[in-house]
């Protein structure tokens, strides 16, 4: 028996909306499970990443841990896909690039309304934030992009089925949108 393609997914600096949209393929998820094996993904709760054929990345790169996860995905996945607006161009989180990191952190942890115990967290367990949020192609090479906030379930389905069947990926007009 031929081994099924292994798929991993991760959410970096995003809202998990793209993962929710993946679940929105509804009953087609049963077909998908027939087609692929899931490796590390929030859907399986597998925490370690093995060699994969396909990696789907939601979210932009906002902190040191995002960088680490993204690089690991790039190392382990033959094909890496930026899924959703945040992975593609930083999305909503990148709107913080309008401000300095100090401004953001002081507003959140020191000077904002309702802050108790003001102080910027410095526990070594907490990943440090990057000066700016970046789309993932600014950190690693990517092979495909799937825009949308989130990409619709149909767009995700079109993408996965055509890719897995080795066809050139062509979306109907209504499936491509940046929002």
């Amino acid at each position: 028996m031929v081994e099924k393609p292994r798929v991993a997914t991760a959410s970096l600096c995003g809202c998990f909306g793209c993962h929710m949209s993946l679940l929105d393929i509804d009953e087609r998820i049963l077909q998908l499970v027939d087609l692929v094996t899931f490796d590390r993904t929030p859907l399986t709760d597998i925490k370690t990443l093995g060699d994969c054929d396909l990696g789907l990345i939601e979210g932009g790169v906002a902190n040191a841990e995002n960088v680490e996860v993204l690089r690991e995905f790039r190392r382990c996945c033959k094909t890496l896909v930026a899924v959703g607006a945040c992975a593609v161009n930083g999305g909503i989180p990148a709107m913080r690039n309008q401000f300095g990191l100090a401004e953001c952190l002081r507003e959140s942890y020191c000077e904002g309304i309702g802050v108790h115990n003001p102080g910027i967290p410095n526990d070594p367990e907490i990943p440090l934030l990057l000066n700016q949020v970046h789309p993932i192609h600014e950190v690693v090479a990517i092979d495909y992009v799937l825009p949308g906030c989130p990409p619709s379930a149909d767009a995700i389905w079109t993408f996965l089925t055509e890719l897995l069947e080795g066809r050139p990926i062509a979306f109907p007009y209504t499936q491509i949108h940046f929002d």
């Binding site: 040191a64 300095g100 990191l101 990943p127 440090l128 000066n131």
Partner: peptide, 17 residues
């Protein structure tokens, strides 16, 4: 270098920084 501001703000310089 992209962690420079965060390092300065937190005073961290550990390996995770």
């Amino acid at each position: 270098s992209a962690l420079s501001e965060a390092r300065a703000l937190t005073g961290r310089d550990d390996i995770g920084a």
